[in-house]
Design a protein around this nucleic acid. Structure first.
Length: 671
DNA sequence: CAAACTTTAAACATTC
DNA sequence: CGAATGTTTAAAGTTT
C-alpha cells in the first residue's frame, strides 16, 4: 500500500494524453533526487567521552594527572561552548542549551551539535549568513582549540618534568605510567581535535562529509528514519547525542542484514539497522547503497541534495523555493518523516537499485563487448566510454562500477526500470532512442524481451524502428499490416492496451516513411523494409554527447536504458559495427535472421550520392565494404520514384545478397 | 533558433 | 455497408 501511495504522489505530474513534457521532468527528479535521497547516511559513530572512558578505580599519580587534564578539558569545553553558542545564535537565548551541553560528559566534539542543531541555526539565519557564521565559528573554535591543546601540552610537559625530577625515587613503572598517560592524553586530544573538526564540518555543511573517524557507536535513531530525507536525519542526529559518522565500511555488512525493515517503517526507530534494505515487491532484497556520504561532489555548503534550480527535488514535488532556507522549511513541513515520505523514499530506493543493477549489467556487457572487439582486453575499469562515464557522474552516488557490478549480474530479467516504469505508466514516454541501426534494438529487445512483453512500459523505440524490427524478424522479411499489429501486441504489453492510437501510428509510419515498402503479394499486400532508406534517415552523428547521456538517464526511468545506451554505443563509438564482418556475427544478428541485409544496407547507403562518401562510415572501413556490399539492392531502390536517389551506380554491382529484395521490389514497383 | 524527426489525430480514399 | 488498409495533412513535441 505504501508503494501505491508513493507512486501516486510521484506520478503527480500532469499526464495528459500528450503529456510529453512532464516526463522528462519526472525522470530528472527521479534520478537526481533518487540517488541522493535514497542513500542513507550510515550509522553514526560517536566517540564518546574520550576522557571519561578510562576511568580507573585506583588513584595512581597517573590518574591524578589524568583527572586534572579532564578538568581542564571540561573548562575548555565550556568555554568553547559559550563561544559557539554566542556565535551561532546571535541574539538568541541559548542559555539552556549551553547549560545542558555542559552537563553532558561527552567530548567537546559533541557540544556543537547539541547546542544548536543545524536545523535551528538554519531557521534562524539565511543561508549566506549561516554559511558565513559557520565558517567563522569553525575558524574560531579551531583556533581556540589549538590554543587549548597547546596549553595542555605545555602543562603536561611541565608536569611530566616536575614529576620526573621530583619523583626520581619513584619506581620506574610509575614513570612509565605517567608517560603512558601522557601519551594517551595527547592521543585523546588529537582525537578530540579531529572529532571536533568533523563536527564543525558537518555542522557547517548540512551536506556532510563525515567518516574518517569512526567509532563503535552508531547513531541508531536515524537508521529508522530511512534514507529519504537527509536533512531530517541531520536534525535528528544532533539531538540524541553521538554524531553519526557515517559508516562507509559497515555498509557492506549492513547490507547483508535482514531485509525486513521495510515493513516496519512506521515503526519506531532506534532498532533498525543503519542501512535500509528493503524487500522489493518481487521479493528481491534491495541492496541499498548509501553512497551519498563522502561523495559530496559539487555540494557546496549552501546547497542541498534535494534542492536545485530553485525547486524541491523531492520526487514528484517540484515546489518552488526561493532560497535554501525556504526550501529547508518546505522540506521539514512537506516531507517530514511520515508514511508518505517513507513510501516515496522506498520507491526512490528501488529506482536507485534498479539503476545500479542495470548499470552493473551494462558495464559487464560493455566489457564483454570491448573484449570481443579487442578494443581493450577488459581492463579493470569497464568505464572508459564517455557514455558510461557521464552516466556515472549523473549518479549522485558516484558509486557505479565498484563491486556492485560484480554482484549484480545475477538479476533475472530485471528490465531497465521496473519500479519507475510502473509509476509512469500513465503518459506516453517520449524519449526514445533514435535507433538508426537495428542492432541496438534487436539486442535490446532480445535482452529485455520478457520485460516488454509483460510490463506495461512503452518501448523506447520509434514506431519506425519497431516496425522495421518486426519485419526483419521474420524469415522473409515481410509482414502484412495485421501481422505487424500482432507483433506489436505480442512483443509489448504496452501495445496490448492502447490500441487505437498506435495502430494508426503504425499505419501512418508505414506509409510515411520511404523505408517501408508495400509489396503486393498473392495473398495481399505485405510490407517490407528498405534498409537503405532506413539508414538514410538523419545521419547518425551523435557521439557520446551529454544529451545522449541525459536521454539515457531519463529514459531509463521508463526502462529505456538499455536501448539508448546501446543505441549510443552502436551509433557513436562503434562505427565498425557497421562492417559486415563485425556486425553480422556479433550482437546485431542475434535476433535477426537477416544478417546480410542489415549489414549490407549501411554500407551502400550512398553510392547514390556519388559525390561524397558516406559520412557515417569511417572511410577505410567503408571502402572496404563497398566491394563486398551488394549494389543490387540499390537497383531495387530505383524503383522508388524517390527523387532523392539518383540511380545508384550499378558499377559495383551486386552480389547475390540482395536478391531477396530484388525479387520482390520489382514487382511492387510496377504495381 | 531552425530543421529534421516522432507522435497523435483525423479526414479521406480504397479494398476486402 | 462496415471494417481494414493506406494516404495525407496538421499540430505539437523532441532532438540535432
Amino acid at each position: 500500500m505504501m508503494v501505491e501511495s508513493a507512486s501516486e504522489t510521484i506520478r503527480s505530474a500532469p499526464s495528459g494524453q500528450n503529456g510529453v513534457g512532464s516526463l522528462s521532468g519526472q525522470a530528472d527528479g527521479g534520478s537526481g533526487g533518487g540517488a541522493g535521497a535514497a542513500v542513507t547516511a550510515g550509522g553514526g559513530v560517536g566517540r564518546d567521552s574520550a576522557a571519561g572512558a578510562d576511568s580507573n578505580g585506583e588513584m595512581s599519580p597517573a590518574d591524578l594527572l589524568h583527572f586534572q587534564q579532564q578538568q581542564a578539558l571540561q573548562v575548555a569545553r565550556q568555554f568553547l561552548l559559550q563561544q559557539a553558542s554566542g556565535l551561532s545564535s546571535p541574539g538568541n537565548n541559548d542559555s539552556k542549551q549551553s547549560a545542558s551541553a555542559v552537563q553532558v560528559p561527552v567530548s567537546v566534539a559533541m557540544m556543537s551539535p547539541q547546542m544548536l542543531t543545524p536545523q535551528q541555526m538554519q531557521q534562524m539565519l539565511s543561508p549566506p549568513q549561516l554559511q558565513a557564521l559557520l565558517q567563522q565559528q569553525q575558524a574560531l573554535m579551531l583556533q581556540q582549540l589549538q590554543e587549548y591543546y597547546k596549553k595542555q601540552q605545555e602543562q603536561l610537559h611541565l608536569q611530566l618534568l616536575t614529576q620526573q625530577q621530583a619523583g626520581k625515587q619513584q619506581p620506574k613503572e610509575a614513570l612509565g605510567n605517567k608517560q603512558l598517560a601522557f601519551q594517551q592524553q595527547l592521543l585523546q586530544m588529537q582525537q578530540l581535535q579531529q572529532q571536533h573538526l568533523l563536527n564543525l564540518q558537518r555542522q557547517g555543511l548540512v551536506s556532510l562529509q563525515p567518516n574518517q573517524a569512526s567509532g563503535p557507536l552508531q547513531a541508531l535513531p536515524q537508521a529508522a528514519v530511512c534514507p529519504t530525507d537527509l536533512p531530517q536525519l541531520w536534525k535528528g542526529e544532533g539531538a540524541p547525542g553521538q554524531p553519526p559518522e557515517d559508516s562507509v565500511k559497515q555498509e557492506g555488512l549492513d547490507l547483508t542484514g535482514t531485509a525486513t525493515t521495510a515493513t516496519s517503517f512506521a515503526a519506531p526507530p532506534k532498532v533498525s539497522p543503519p542501512l535500509s534494505h528493503h524487500t522489493l515487491p518481487n521479493g528481491q532484497p534491495t541492496v541499498l547503497t548509501p553512497r551519498r556520504d563522502s561523495s559530496s561532489h559539487e555540494e557546496t555548503p549552501g546547497s542541498h541534495p534535494l534542492y536545485g534550480h530553485g525547486e524541491c527535488k523531492w520526487p514528484g514535488c517540484e515546489t518552488l523555493c526561493e532560497d535554501l532556507g525556504q526550501f529547508i522549511k518546505h522540506l521539514n513541513t512537506e516531507h517530514a518523516l511520515d508514511d508518505r515520505s517513507t513510501a516515496q523514499c522506498r520507491v526512490q530506493m528501488q529506482v536507485v537499485q534498479q539503476l545500479e543493477i542495470q548499470l552493473a549489467k551494462e558495464s559487464e556487457r560493455l566489457q564483454a563487448m570491448m573484449a570481443h572487439l579487442h578494443m581493450r582486453p577488459s581492463e579493470p575499469k569497464p568505464f572508459s566510454q564517455p557514455v558510461t562515464i557521464s552516466a556515472a557522474d549523473s549518479f549522485p552516488d558516484g558509486l557505479v562500477h565498484p563491486p556492485t557490478s560484480a554482484a549484480a549480474p545475477v538479476t533475472p530479467l530485471r528490465p531497465p526500470g521496473l519500479g519507475s516504469a510502473s509509476l509512469h505508466s500513465g503518459g506516453p514516454a517520449r524519449r526514445r532512442s533514435s535507433d538508426k541501426f537495428c542492432s541496438p534494438i534487436s539486442s535490446e529487445l532480445a535482452q529485455n524481451h520478457e520485460f516488454y512483453k509483460n510490463a506495461d512500459v512503452r518501448p523506447p523505440f520509434t514506431y519506425a524502428s519497431l516496425i522495421r524490427q518486426a519485419i526483419l524478424e521474420t524469415p522473409d522479411r515481410q509482414l502484412t499490416l495485421n501481422e505487424i499489429y500482432n507483433w506489436f501486441t505480442r512483443m509489448f504489453a504496452y501495445f496490448r492496451r492502447n490500441t487505437a492510437t498506435w495502430k494508426n501510428a503504425v499505419r501512418h509510419n508505414l506509409s510515411l516513411h520511404k523505408c517501408f515498402v508495400r509489396v503486393e503479394n498473392v495473398k495481399g499486400a505485405v510490407w517490407t523494409v528498405d534498409e537503405r532508406e532506413y539508414q538514410k534517415r538523419r545521419p547518425p552523428k551523435m557521439t557520446g554527447s551529454p544529451t545522449l547521456v541525459k536521454n539515457m538517464i531519463s529514459g531509463l526511468s521508463y526502462g529505456a536504458l538499455n536501448a539508448s545506451y546501446q543505441a549510443a554505443l552502436a551509433e557513436s563509438s562503434f562505427p565498425l559495427l557497421n562492417s559486415p564482418g563485425m556486425l553480422n556475427p556479433g550482437s546485431a544478428s542475434s535476433l535477426l535472421p537477416l544478417s546480410h541485409d542489415d549489414v549490407g544496407a549501411p554500407g551502400e547507403p550512398l553510392p547514390s550520392n556519388g559525390s561524397s562518401s558516406p559520412p557515417r562510415l569511417s572511410p577505410p572501413q567503408y571502402s572496404h565494404q563497398v566491394q563486398v556490399k551488394e549494389e543490387p539492392t540499390e537497383a531495387e531502390e530505383d524503383r522508388r520514384p524517390g527523387p532523392a536517389l539518383g540511380p545508384p551506380n550499378p558499377s559495383t554491382t551486386g552480389p547475390a545478397e540482395d536478391r531477396d529484395l530484388e525479387e520482390e521490389l520489382p514487382g511492387e514497383e510496377l504495381s
